[in-house]
């Protein structure tokens, strides 16, 4: 990881400064911890894998390593969209395993302080499992949903993945 990605300790009482990568998905903006993001790539050719959950798009060759690709839209039960020039795959580290997530667009790296994270309101997100939402960040004119990657897959899903 690059040096720039090391979280910066804030010296005031506002808690730790966190760096997030923000990305777009169906009008909404989301954020994940920058340390979890390995790289951001354009859409390559995806090889379909049969008999997998619907949100698994398939696998790709990431410089000699085969990694699964997951459609964030499908995972969150959002409308499917055509891939366009903005579409990106965020390769992230989910509990030690590399996985690619298809998102509409990746915007920027932002810094927030821990105190800006608010717990998500009880009824906030249509299809998205509440589990994987770590909180909401309300910054001036933008609203960011902070995702917790390790909660992306429910226990049942993990069971499906790891043994059938």
């Amino acid at each position: 990881m690059q040096d720039a990605l090391v979280p910066v300790k804030a010296d005031d009482a506002h808690g730790e400064l966190i760096q997030l990568v923000s990305f777009n998905l169906d009008q909404e903006e989301y954020g994940v911890d920058v340390l979890k993001v390995r790289e951001i790539i354009r859409m390559p050719v995806v090889t379909r894998v049969p008999n997998t959950p619907h949100y698994v798009e398939g696998v790709i060759n990431l410089r000699g390593k085969v990694i699964p690709i997951i459609s964030m839209r499908k995972k969150f039960g959002l409308m499917e969209a055509e891939n366009d020039k903005q579409t990106r795959i965020m390769v992230m580290d989910v509990e030690g395993e590399l996985m690619g997530f298809i998102v509409d667009a990746v915007s920027e790296v932002i810094r927030i302080s821990g105190s800006e994270i608010q717990p998500s309101p009880a009824v906030v997100t249509g299809g998205i499992d509440q589990e994987c939402i770590a909180g909401v960040i309300n910054q001036a004119e933008r609203l960011l949903v902070l995702l917790k990657l390790e909660m992306m897959f429910s226990r049942d899903e993990k069971k499906f993945f790891s043994g059938m």
Binding site: T47, P50, V56, I60, V66, P68, M99
Partner: peptide, 27 residues
């Protein structure tokens, strides 16, 4: 042979994957 990783390791009928000359993944 390339593993499909932990998450996709147990798909019935699929033993793994490999990468062909053109860089595409084949099951």
């Amino acid at each position: 042979i390339k593993s499909l990783g932990n998450y996709l390791a147990n798909i019935p009928g699929i033993a793994g994957s490999t990468i062909l000359g053109d860089g595409r993944v084949t099951l």
